[in-house]
């Protein structure tokens, strides 16, 4: 893959990100940031790949640190996001847990 292809993917993903995230309501901004945090935990894939090519002490140390950092990021991020989202309830009574029809995607909140 060429650098240009990578760059095209990068820029298009930025646009998709702006589009999707500007629809998230302010009430969910903390879980959103935490979810985004977990997503950048995909750097774990990078850590795995550098571990695969490591064959020196320095290489192993770098791979270990990268794997530990990234794993902490991805696991912690998803767990704490889940913990937060679990607390968001319409009402404490379970009867109304069934949320009314959500006009997903079209419910504004568009900003920036």
């Amino acid at each position: 893959m060429t650098l240009l292809t990578d760059f095209i993917i990068f820029v298009l993903s930025l646009w998709v990100g702006f589009e999707v995230i500007s629809k998230v309501p302010a009430t969910l901004h903390t879980p959103l940031m935490s979810a985004a945090n977990s997503i950048h935990g995909i750097v774990l894939a990078g850590a795995i790949l550098i571990a695969a090519s490591a064959n020196s002490l320095i290489g192993y140390i770098l791979a270990f640190l990268a794997a530990a950092f990234a794993a902490m990021n991805v696991v912690g991020g998803y767990v704490v996001t889940g913990r937060m989202l679990k607390m968001f309830k319409r009402r404490t009574v379970p009867a109304s847990a069934q949320a009314p029809a959500v006009n997903a995607g079209q419910n504004g909140g568009k900003s920036a």
């Binding site: 990068f10 820029v11 993903s13 930025l14 998709v16 940031m33 985004a36 997503i39 950048h40």
Partner: peptide, 8 residues
């Protein structure tokens, strides 16, 4: 993934 987080 990095671009999505950057946008966010």
């Amino acid at each position: 993934a990095g671009a999505l987080v950057g946008a966010s």
